[in-house]
Design a binder for these strands. Sequence first.
DNA 1: TAGTTATTGATACTTAGTATCTATTATATC
DNA 2: GATATAATAGATACTAAGTATCAATAACTA
Lengths: 155, 155
Amino acid sequence: MLTSDIRHKGHDHPRPRSLAAVDEIVSRLADRGYRDTEPRRLVISAAAAQGRPFTAEELCAALPCVGRATVYRGLRLLVETDLVCRVLLEDRELKYQLSHQGHHHHMLCAVCGVSADLAGCDVEDVLREAAAAAGFRMSGHWLEVYGLCGKCASP
Amino acid sequence: MLTSDIRHKGHDHPRPRSLAAVDEIVSRLADRGYRDTEPRRLVISAAAAQGRPFTAEELCAALPCVGRATVYRGLRLLVETDLVCRVLLEDRELKYQLSHQGHHHHMLCAVCGVSADLAGCDVEDVLREAAAAAGFRMSGHWLEVYGLCGKCASP
DNA sequence: TAGTTATTGATACTTAGTATCTATTATATC
DNA sequence: GATATAATAGATACTAAGTATCAATAACTA
């Protein structure tokens, strides 16, 4: 468990057993001038420890020793630097997820909540053309797909 | 102005000069057992009077004589009966819009806020196939496209 | 090591929307 | 048209998600 090393706040935290991923993210942030702080590492490692999309509040609950505002700030930073992506549920609830690639889309399972990347799909081109047909120049979009994953569809 | 007849609350409102559309919507609701009430007509006609996507709060402001909860309830009812559709902005703000057809998608102009239907577009099939390729059975989706409308792109 | 600046955390605030509850109103029936 | 009853309205309180503020602290730089 990544979060098992989180004990108390303020001083001399042992660093969470570091996933190469956390160090790498921290150093990428350092390249952009962001400081390497304990709370920030905690947010990153807790995010990395989630197996599926998670909410900001879940992360707050998992990190009682980190302030709420800090968790939100950390997530926002990770999204801005494309290290985490945002996922929108059908009820407009927002979740987050470590992203392994650039821009992409997700399938979300309505039962177990697992997500899968929607790969090898040229939806964007299709959209851009449809937009052009309506006289629009496309600059962005929201796209989320919901359904049942293989396991939940046929258990 | 549709809302110009809204004067005070409680009794003997003159009906807003009725758009055939409002009467038709009211009667479609009646078919489903929903009553024809003054506040509900006001919500419907105010919604119908909007030229582009609007927020629930904008509608509340436009209808100071109708309670907030009633405006929200009215919108929810209209969405449930497919008479109004929900539109999601890039910042996750929710807007509404009278819908002229069944399920469809929108283009939204980032500058003037106008929306256009994304017609003749088989995105859904594309999505369903891509989902199937990932082992998912698609049951729903969110799709909104943002950009610039013809006017705002080349003024 | 000291100075500067980013960052933190506590807290207050905002916004969008829902729940509750009493009073009222629309409709069906007589 | 009068009346019963069930839906609806409005006032209000509440909730949830997220942001703003600001003094205290910690990270980097020289």
